[in-house]
Design a protein around this nucleic acid. Sequence first.
DNA 1: CATGAATGAGATTTCATTCAT
DNA 2: TATGAATGAAATCTCATTCAT
Lengths: 220, 220, 220, 220
Amino acid sequence: MEGSIARKRPLRRAPHATRDPERTRAAILQAATREITSKGLNGARVDTIAAGAGVNKRMIYHYFGDKEGLYLAVLEATYASIRSAELGLNLSDLDPVEAMKKLVLFTWHYFLDHPEFLGLLATENLHHATYLKRSKRIRHLHTPLIGIISGLLERGAKEKVFRRGVDPVELYISIAALGFFYLSNRHTLSTVFGNELCAPERLKSRGRHIVEVVLGYLRP
Amino acid sequence: MEGSIARKRPLRRAPHATRDPERTRAAILQAATREITSKGLNGARVDTIAAGAGVNKRMIYHYFGDKEGLYLAVLEATYASIRSAELGLNLSDLDPVEAMKKLVLFTWHYFLDHPEFLGLLATENLHHATYLKRSKRIRHLHTPLIGIISGLLERGAKEKVFRRGVDPVELYISIAALGFFYLSNRHTLSTVFGNELCAPERLKSRGRHIVEVVLGYLRP
Amino acid sequence: MEGSIARKRPLRRAPHATRDPERTRAAILQAATREITSKGLNGARVDTIAAGAGVNKRMIYHYFGDKEGLYLAVLEATYASIRSAELGLNLSDLDPVEAMKKLVLFTWHYFLDHPEFLGLLATENLHHATYLKRSKRIRHLHTPLIGIISGLLERGAKEKVFRRGVDPVELYISIAALGFFYLSNRHTLSTVFGNELCAPERLKSRGRHIVEVVLGYLRP
Amino acid sequence: MEGSIARKRPLRRAPHATRDPERTRAAILQAATREITSKGLNGARVDTIAAGAGVNKRMIYHYFGDKEGLYLAVLEATYASIRSAELGLNLSDLDPVEAMKKLVLFTWHYFLDHPEFLGLLATENLHHATYLKRSKRIRHLHTPLIGIISGLLERGAKEKVFRRGVDPVELYISIAALGFFYLSNRHTLSTVFGNELCAPERLKSRGRHIVEVVLGYLRP
DNA sequence: CATGAATGAGATTTCATTCAT
DNA sequence: TATGAATGAAATCTCATTCAT
């Protein structure tokens, strides 16, 4: 017993789990998304994520290297989601006004249904988009969207239903802004303007308001 | 052994330093604002704040109790700033369109000039406005702008330069949104849409764009 | 939802691989020797050894019990190597001076060609030779060189080419020391005395120096 | 009570200690030297060092940044010790043979009295002298020593008591080697040659042996 | 015999906060 | 009022080892 310098590490039995790497990875990613988007990167706890995913903490490091790697994976997965959702819109089939309405409402509802996307963007901007800049996969995913809006604006101008000279990037940012800000800042806003801001009917009317603002502005 | 008797411990400096409570407090508050609004509550470091203020860490606890107390003070001071700025607007003297334009640009420039306000709102919303709700001073400090906007919209409608049926709260939120989102999300946006988003001339044109959107929408 | 049914989990590969116990064991031992002798017992990583051997980590535990067992195996194999090399010397055929020269150069070149032996001794001494003492196989495996050196010294003294009263153990330790220290400490030494210490020609001249020191000292 | 998102960290009272930064730093350094030189960098435990120094673990990071910083400090302090000891030798006052004898015995006794120096060099060489190379302070401390030996050899050659053509660097390495190896490898050596290697009288005779080897070799 | 996902223990490091002066 | 050394709690991360297949 004595004389042994390097004490062996005692090990208990291991109450193992999934044995399905894809599921384990996905479970971690999902739990991490919840935790990180609601508490920020600094506020998120690796232990909480592991517990939420029902896996051993060690697995997080096995699959994602470290906390930052996990965050990057969450970032990429979340961005990939919204981009792939946008692909199903098929706006070129509709007349410009209807198409624009559809785009505006899609954006609003996407934000509404994916609060994690809002939280993640807030976190990422707090970090000056350091991680987003690191990911080359995401960088050029937005150009097709701008192309679509550009085409829409041209068609609308030709058909005299839209004003001329509208910058598609500014417009897209405005469309996003009108929904994003309302939702991302709902806690401070409802402190000032009352809790009804988050009531379902109020959210519906906010959607209509955004459509009105955008289409009202675009009138020639 | 001998010869080193004198070098026991460094001569104690008299604890003089600032001795100006007001300045110390203000210095801490300023440093805290910088640190907290740029890194979030969790990301902010008490050491960094103390160093930035050029004061001893202990002073923070002396003046503000703890980190949360300091955060609350930052929150209150920052909110007080924007409210007092809003008081100097005097919109009732102008015709509705000019007044609305002035209001929109004031909001845009306020955000532009006070990035700490943006960061603070992002942080506070991440925390579900817990601290804002806790502060009795701020809680019922409604922005006076809603009343002003209401009056403006009525005047404009009467003069047939604004459309009818516009909700002043929704409109105010939209005005804020169009500027806030652009600036608070400038890091992710410029990663995706290009760095020129932050160039001075581009910021100016964003201001014009916001005015156009709001006034375009308000046209009857 | 449909369309992704087939992609549940990756097809399980049949567990064939090596299936050659001897080769697996040898591969592990070789990789372990590299890793442990270059990083020490504490610095060596089981994962790295498994990867280096191209085998599954589990195999290490199958063949060697645990990390310490593996280390002991490395220790025994490495010691066995040098002892078997010493057997091929046949010094009794040569005249004392030539024999001594051959012995000195053999030792120097053995260290030069087997850096793993140096690293292992350093590690083992850091651990107070705990493992060496534990190994019954090595424990009483005295180096045969002492007897040979003894004989050599007697012959040399009788032929008046060596001084009298030389302790063979001290001499052997000195012969080893002159080579071992130069090589085991080459990193700190070359930091202090310049990198040329490790140049091939310099190593050759070090060999000559050691011969000169030993034979110079032995002169009557 | 509820509604507070960020739980305050409970703090016990602090059974503080020295309040003397120099002593605290020194205590850490001393404990670290013991722990690191006897277990290596990887084997050393920060907790053990803190306990050994009787300080809070946090202090280590306060004073030395991290474990590597602490190691570097140990390295520098240990090297500084031997160099400053060498300065007191005043070899140029003695005749060459006596001076050489004094140098050899000094080196031997220094190693004997400072086992931490041996352990540290072993550790540092295991790490390929990465840390030593980083420290610019240490790098050129050896040239004066070589200069002294060079002068000694010249004087001795002129007085016909030393042979000609001896390289001072090789000689110094040999002097160090003869003592260093005996002590650093005493655990494995005494396993093979018996425990009497470490007996006081045996250590004394080893010192005489080294002197004999060096002076014997240097004879013209 | 072989695989590799999973694990528990413990390592290093961070940080808000308090104490002696 | 002011200092800064010191602290406890908890965070992130590492690693030898084991289990289901």
